[in-house]
């Protein structure tokens, strides 16, 4: 079944001002005012973290900043809550492995 409805169409959002971000090097489109998590969901990406113990994939769960499952590395900084941080043009989002500090180890 073809469906033309979308959340943006429903509320009449201005989609012409979309900009680009990257997720693990891949270019995605985001809308101004969208959180990083919302931009990733809109691109069909549901997981951007692996857990510390089991290495399992996780993404946004509670959607309101309470569960910390959506932690992402944004522009090199780990442990940002993707559901709260607004996406900005040129943001580089990378999958956070474990506690996110592996790259800082000496």
């Amino acid at each position: 079944m073809t469906r033309h409805r979308s959340p943006a169409a429903l509320v009449g959002a201005a989609t012409e001002s979309a900009f680009e971000i990257t997720f693990d090097g891949r270019t995605l489109s985001a809308l101004p005012g969208q959180s990083v998590a919302a931009a990733l969901w809109s691109a069909g990406v549901l997981a951007w973290r692996t857990t510390r113990v089991g290495g399992r994939p996780r993404g946004a769960f509670c959607g309101i900043g309470q569960c910390y499952d959506c932690l992402a590395t944004i522009n090199g900084r780990p442990n940002r809550r993707a559901c709260l941080v607004p996406a900005r043009p040129g943001d580089a989002i990378t999958t956070q492995e474990g506690e996110g500090h592996a790259g800082l180890a000496v």
Partner: peptide, 18 residues
């Protein structure tokens, strides 16, 4: 991934249109 809070889905839709 893909299991989300019901309120979370609502919140992500209402504010992020996702």
């Amino acid at each position: 991934p893909g299991v989300v809070g019901a309120g979370g889905a609502q919140a992500m839709l209402k504010s992020g249109l996702a």
